[in-house]
Write a protein that binds this DNA or RNA. Structure first.
Lengths: 228, 228
DNA sequence: GGATAACGTGAATTGTGGTTCACGAGAGGC
DNA sequence: GCCTCTCGTGAACCACAATTCACGTTATCC
């Protein structure tokens, strides 16, 4: 009785308690693929249902509407991305090692699982304006803090020469990373990279990653001793 | 007779020759605003027609369909952006002066006319995948070439220390500019900038521009003599 | 094993908005 | 004045996809 009541408040009428985990996974993956491929607006719930082998009804039992389902897909893929990134940042102590590792992982991942990064790109686009503020806070918040702190510490300890505001430095650095991710996953950015760097690089994440490491190292390190 | 025939091939049945210039301008501006605000998919042709004071019929007499109209709006706003940028690059001879000027102009413009830059952002999103290749070629082609050449020349003449591949350097540099534009025009990127740099900077394009100039100067120049 | 509730189904409903087209107004020619 | 051709109009049409819901199926409890 108490449980019934609670369910009502948590999920609303007609919603069920939970979905079996493998079905949930299939649904999330189908959703992520679909949204990455067509974008929030053109993705079709019916198609997602078909792909994941359930009926549309199920989607609407567990998610209020398309937006709600989309946000769930975003959360799902974000969790995976964050886990990857967090482990990279955690395991490396020195700044350049961390940056090097971060960039390598990022280009590899963006190239290997474009759908996650396309979804990330999708939320930056106009169709998600409504959620821009909360999504930005959730997604960029921790990254911004971590980068700023690492840079500030490195500046104090004299390990990097560049003296600009740590927060802005973190911002520019992350801008470079963000563009790099998109360049290996989103169609327009991929083409653009091909035009700038040469088409032969469109499938060479390591080469571009390596070049960016040099670029960043030059700015932050000021010398060559921290590269190689 | 001959003219009739020609019109057919150029425009298709039911299309007219031309629109009076001020109506055209109103239509383009309404379209740009609408697409910037709602994105390609959510923008409503009926609404655009109403805003620009013509009937939907007119839109479909002059443009094949919504996509066609959208691309016309993109071309229109792009021409304006390119004119601005070209004049900046042309009038400055030395590299750092050029970069400085470029960045200042860009942040000012993005902050003053967000719609143009939102539209630019829109074409990088998934909903325009169909046109990604040709749009990228058209939009990024000339910029990529100009930046690469300037950087390569500066390297040869020893005016910059950074020795990385000029094309990739141009790419990273333009990545920074692109993110900067979006950060002053598109909602998600604006929020993100607020989180990284502090909310007080969300309306201070000059401050961020100045910081980026320092950042870039450090990488390219290697020393402080070219700043000030 | 039957009653009840939980869950899943997908055809039907519905709203939105792109696109069409039958019609009216004005301009130019005869 | 009348005919014709150009141009503009906006109500009506229609496709598409989000959302619903009446109905089966399965699970649970007694």
């Amino acid at each position: 009785m108490v449980h019934e009541r609670r369910r009502f408040f948590l999920m609303g009428w007609g919603m069920y308690k939970k979905l079996d985990p493998e079905a949930l996974q299939r649904i999330m993956e189908a959703g992520i693929e679909e949204f990455a491929e067509y974008g929030l607006d053109r993705a079709a719930m019916n198609h997602i249902a078909k792909t994941s082998g359930v009926s549309v009804g199920v989607l609407y039992k567990y998610y209020k509407d398309k937006d709600d389902f989309f946000l769930a897909c975003v959360q799902y893929s974000l969790r995976l991305l964050e886990e990857t990134m967090a482990s990279v940042v955690r395991q490396e102590a020195d700044l350049m090692g961390c940056i090097r590792n971060l960039i390598h992982t990022l280009v590899q991942e963006a190239h290997a699982h474009p759908a996650y990064y396309k979804l990330y790109n999708e939320i930056t686009s106009g169709s998600c304006k409504k959620y821009a503020a909360e999504l930005a806070a959730q997604i960029e918040g921790s990254t911004a803090k971590i980068y700023s702190e690492i840079i500030e510490r490195a500046q104090k300890e004299g390990r990097i020469e560049f003296a600009g505001d740590p927060r802005m430095t973190a911002f520019f650095f992350d801008n470079l990373l963000m563009m790099l991710q998109f360049s290996f996953s989103c169609e327009y950015y991929r083409r653009r990279m091909g035009i700038f760097c040469g088409e032969e690089y469109m499938d060479q994440p390591e080469a571009i990653g390596e070049a960016l490491i040099q670029f960043v190292a030059t700015t932050l390190g000021g010398g060559e001793e921290c590269m190689r």
